[in-house]
Structure formats: structure tokens, C-alpha cells
Design a protein around this nucleic acid. Structure first.
Length: 277
DNA sequence: ATGATGTCCTGGGCGC
DNA sequence: TGCGCCCAGGACATCA
């Protein structure tokens, strides 16, 4: 489900409303998520205060004054909702509810349960296996030609697969990989070993542009994603290739958008302006 | 080590 | 209306 722009939107929304709230009750459903809940999940952070909310890759990190953070990943279908009132009406697939002071609540809902909610000591976050192999943040200054070139060295993967691999660059999922490659006018099938200097530079720019524009639009709302306040993002109305099978290309006005499969994920590209050579 | 494939799950949409 | 099939914003494990 959510890629970096959606997670970033959620984090910005939560940051406005959660700081200094105290956790007074934690509910979890009987179903496990992708990773089992941390031990003492329902009691560990009781009475702690939320002191920060931030994003790492596609993870939402809610930091408490107990020196521990709540780590949330939304998987494909997860949602995080905020309510300015005590949450009583449980919906199907509500798996975790944090009841906070001032009658606020945060609700984690995830039909497919591919996500996770964990508590991790702040000092252990980067040693944790969820985080230790993550690549660079796309808005980092260090995402530059040198970094990119070093990462693609000796690799044979397609560029789309490379972009979606969190060990290279974090936060890019299937939608934005498609959009980034279209903006860069590079075929998703192109092997990273054939990318030239110019293409790499354009790609780096395209990553930043697409993700930034998506954040400005509040993310993309297809089926599952809505911001914690219930608002829908609208970047989907700016999609140039994703979900545009057989439509004309906005970019070159000559080609048509093709839908195909690459690495078992639906892949959209313009047959004219994203040629492999 | 790398890349391809399978797997965890539920629900929506489609064709019959 | 109902059934079976395929598809879905992710991330891993496993295998050659």
C-alpha cells in the first residue's frame, strides 16, 4: 500500500496532534501481523508520553519518553487513523488501538496483515534487522551520482527492480517506480549496468521530483490509503503511467502506455519515450 | 552474492 | 446472485 509519500503525509499529520499525548491504554487484536508483537505489548509503554513522530523509509516512528519508539509499517493494506475522541466502534481488521490522554486515539487497521507494530529501544533501531540493511533516503544529499554508481556496480538487475529494492534507495514502491522511470524516460526493463552517466543523473532528479510532488499532493489514494484525518491524497490524478493502460502518453504525445509484468509487479511504461536503447 | 520465484493475507472486481 | 479467478501502494524466505 503506502509508499514514502503516503507515509510522510501520515507522519506530518500525526506530528501535529500527538506530541505530549500520554498513552493510557493499548489494545491489540488476537491476530498476529507479519511480525509477532513485541513482548508485553499492551503494558510496556503505558503512561509514556509521545515526544516525536518521524519517518524512516516506509516506517512510521513514534518516539516516547521511555526511550522506546513505536515502529509501524503499513504493508500493502494498512491504515493509521487518528480520532479526536475515545475509540469505541471497532471496525473489522482493527488490530491495534492506542488510547491517549485528552481522549485521543490512534487506530491501526490492516486487512491483509502484511504490516507490523513493534516497540524498539531508540538506541537499538539501527541495529534492528528491519533497519540495518536499508539504503539511502531519497531526499538525502548523499543520494548522488557517486552513491548510485557504487550501488549499481556489478549488478544486472533491471532499473525498476533496483529502484524498488530498499537496500538501494528506501521508500520507492511500485507506483512511484513506474512514475519515476517515465519522467526519466528510461525503460523499466533496462539493466542498471547499461545506464549512462546522464541517465543516472536524470533518474536521481526524477526520484526527488516525483516523490516531492506526491508529498505535496498528500500521497496517492487508490483503495486503502487515507491520511490519519480521513483525507484522501490526490496524487493519483497526476499519474502519468500507473493505471493508464492503453492511454496516450502525456509526455511524448506519440506513444501509448503499455501494461506488463516485471518482477511479478504490474509495470506501466510508454512504448515510445521509454525505449530500452 | 544475485536474481527469480513463492509466500504471507483479505477483499474487490471481473467474467461466466 | 453466486462462484471462481486474478489482482492489489510490501517485504521476506528460499532456491539455483
Amino acid at each position: 500500500m503506502p509508499e514514502l509519500p503516503e507515509v510522510e503525509t501520515i507522519v506530518r499529520g500525526l506530528k501535529k496532534v500527538l506530541i505530549y499525548s500520554k498513552i493510557i491504554h493499548i489494545y491489540k487484536s488476537k491476530y498476529n501481523l507479519r511480525i509477532s508483537y513485541t513482548k508485553n505489548f499492551e503494558t510496556e509503554l503505558l503512561d509514556s508520553k509521545i515526544i516525536n513522530v518521524y519517518r524512516l523509509a516506509k516506517y512510521i516512528i513514534i518516539e516516547t519518553d521511555f526511550g522506546k519508539s513505536i515502529i509501524i509499517h503499513l504493508g500493502m493494506s494498512g491504515r493509521l487513523l487518528f480520532q479526536n475522541s475515545i475509540y469505541k466502534k471497532h471496525q473489522k481488521h482493527d488490530h491495534v488501538v492506542f488510547h491517549l490522554s485528552d481522549n485521543k486515539s490512534i487506530i491501526y487497521n490492516d486487512p491483509r496483515r502484511f504490516g507490523l507494530v513493534q516497540f524498539i529501544k531508540n538506541s537499538d533501531i539501527f541495529q534492528n534487522k528491519l533497519f540495518k540493511d536499508l539504503g539511502i533516503e531519497p531526499f538525502s544529499k548523499d543520494l548522488n551520482y557517486k552513491y548510485f554508481a557504487s550501488k549499481i556496480k556489478n549488478k544486472n538487475a533491471s532499473i525498476k527492480q533496483f529502484l524498488m529494492n530498499n537496500q538501494n534507495i528506501v521508500g520507492i514502491g511500485n507506483i512511484y517506480a513506474n512514475e519515476i522511470l517515465h519522467l526519466a524516460k528510461i525503460s523499466p526493463f533496462k539493466s542498471v549496468k547499461y545506464l549512462n552517466t546522464h541517465e543516472i543523473k536524470i533518474l536521481i532528479e526524477s526520484i526527488k521530483i516525483i516523490l516531492n510532488n506526491a508529498i505535496i499532493a498528500g500521497g496517492s489514494s487508490l483503495k486503502d490509503y487515507i491520511a490519519p484525518n480521513g483525507m484522501l491524497g490526490n496524487f493519483q490524478s497526476y499519474f502519468k503511467v500507473y493505471n493508464r493502460e492503453n492511454k496516450d502518453c502525456f509526455n511524448c504525445k506519440k506513444g501509448r502506455i503499455i501494461k506488463t509484468t516485471l518482477c511479478q509487479r504490474s509495470t506501466y511504461y510508454c512504448i515510445y519515450c521509454q525505449k530500452i536503447n
